[in-house]
């Protein structure tokens, strides 16, 4: 399964959930698969996806799904500790783990030798899911957060264009979606 397939399968099971999507190809692939006012696309700040997701989950009631990457999680490992301690019931952290920095040319990350599921275990996450071939996301949506979802995907980026929206447009559309519903 490539990253874009994983993203596609997961977003097909989403309805009103809010999505924070990691910088680079993950956001471009999500935009291509299904653009929506419930999506916030990151264009910078590598590592911050899970943190933005945590703040959003704590600020309002709707469910928040974060699409993060192995390299980005490794850049901000402390975030797992903070999420565990704050215990947001409405937060689902999906780590799309291709064992590499996919967006910059698939250089290896240490996720090939360090199992991120075990890291989540050690931190204390109660709700954990692991997928590598198929994804059944419904049980994830039914679980009480914080939920850690580890998805092993093959390296590689889909041939998708850059997101044509400006940062302010992404933000304003998203805020409207969050705050007016």
């Amino acid at each position: 399964m490539e990253r874009i397939e994983a993203i596609k399968t997961i977003v097909e099971s989403l309805k009103i959930e809010l999505v924070i999507c990691n910088i680079g190809f993950p956001s471009r692939e999500l935009y291509q698969v299904k653009d929506s006012s419930t999506n916030f696309y990151m264009l910078g700040s590598m590592g911050m996806a899970s943190s933005i997701g945590l703040g959003l989950a704590m600020a309002q009631k709707r469910k928040v799904v974060v699409f993060d990457g192995d390299g980005s999680v490794l850049m901000n490992l402390g975030s797992l500790v903070t999420i565990y301690n704050q215990k947001p019931e409405n937060l689902i952290l999906v780590v799309l783990d291709n064992e590499c920095y996919g967006s910059t040319g698939s250089q290896c990350t240490y996720a090939s030798t360090v199992d991120l599921s075990k890291v989540a275990d050690a931190v204390g996450f109660q709700e954990k899911f692991f997928f590598s071939d198929d994804i059944d996301f419904q049980p994830v949506l039914n679980a009480e957060g914080p939920v850690f979802v580890h998805v092993k995907v093959k390296p590689g980026n889909a041939d998708v264009p850059v997101i044509p929206m400006k940062p302010d447009e992404i933000k304003e559309r998203f805020i409207k979606e969050v705050q007016e519903k």
Binding site: I20, S51, G55
Partner: peptide
């Protein structure tokens, strides 16, 4: 990390 969290909180109102 704190700045990331605050950005999300701002988006959430």
């Amino acid at each position: 990390e704190g700045f990331g969290i605050c950005a999300g909180a701002y988006l959430g109102g």
